[in-house]
Design a protein around this nucleic acid. Structure first.
Lengths: 156, 156
DNA sequence: AGAAGGTCTTTGCTTGCGCAAGTATTCCGG
DNA sequence: CCGGAATACTTGCGCAAGCAAAGACCTTCT
């Protein structure tokens, strides 16, 4: 009945970092989402899907890669793409060489929609996050947290 | 027809910081939540409610203050406390001097539950977040993001 | 007092999203 | 070439959570 070794409790710095991460994220995202939703009728997740697509070669991505990029479950992405497709912002395309995979492709309409939403998103990110941080802090965050958000993006 | 002045686009550092924040948060929280849920049957939000209560004077907090602490909408907190109360982990108590306010108070059973979940949560925070960061990075994150998660906790 | 207006919490309704199971397709050992 | 395992996506279902409105209560002004 040996129990797994207990971790040492969080010291003050560790506690502060952990809380800062979840609290700040929640607040920033909540505000950003509210603005994007009310001014442009787009979810933050939807925006990010469009944004990722627009930055990809041929403006399309495999469903599974896209899911990893926006950190959404497969089923979650399916529904989201369903909606975006219903709005004509995205199109599904089957892969020619592997009939299992589906590409989500940004339509022209989707691209225009993204361009419309871009300023709102940009302003929000600045107002709610970046304006509160110094360049040094920005660099520190990117360096510290960046690696935590990575997992091999189907390097096949 | 003058449009509001557009913000300058995000440079690479800003972009990296923003993405790092949302991606890392999503991944860390997702994993932590899965562990806590499967091993202890507690949502992360539920855990944090219990944790905040246990650290408060008399182990109780006003609903609205608690909502701010865990960054949840008022209605969201009501439902969550409903469940916790149904499980006997928390009790509601009306305030004697102002009948509008309700306190959520940690029960003995709730405290024990929290103690049981604590090691799992602790291990998760270490494994998924803290172990990947240096002390300097921890300090930088706390300092940079800490202020973003604050709003006057009813200093009445 | 009484009414008007603000504050705190709770309900009605709706949506987003994860897990588990299902379907379609590809890959691989025999 | 066939059958089993693996992969990629999609549906069934349930739960968590937000908004808007309602209900309960305090405060203040007339």
């Amino acid at each position: 009945m040996s129990r797994p070794p207990a971790s040492p409790p969080l010291d003050e710095r560790e506690m502060a970092a952990w809380h800062a991460l979840i609290r700040s994220h929640a607040r920033v995202v909540r505000r950003l989402e509210a603005e994007l939703e009310s001014e442009q009728g787009l979810t933050l997740q939807a925006y990010e899907v469009l944004a990722h697509l627009s930055e990809s070669p041929e403006r399309r991505l495999r469903m599974s890669d896209l899911a990893a990029l926006v950190v959404l479950s497969p089923s979650g992405l399916t529904r989201l793409v369903d909606q975006l497709a219903a709005d004509g912002l995205v199109e599904r395309a089957r892969c020619a060489t592997d009939a299992r995979v589906v590409y989500a492709a940004l339509t022209e309409k989707g691209f225009e929609r993204l361009q419309g939403a871009y300023p709102v998103h940009l302003r929000g990110v600045r107002r709610h996050l970046i304006d509160h941080l110094t360049p040094r802090q920005l660099a520190a965050i990117a360096e510290a947290l960046g690696p935590l958000g990575v997992d091999c993006p189907t390097a096949s």
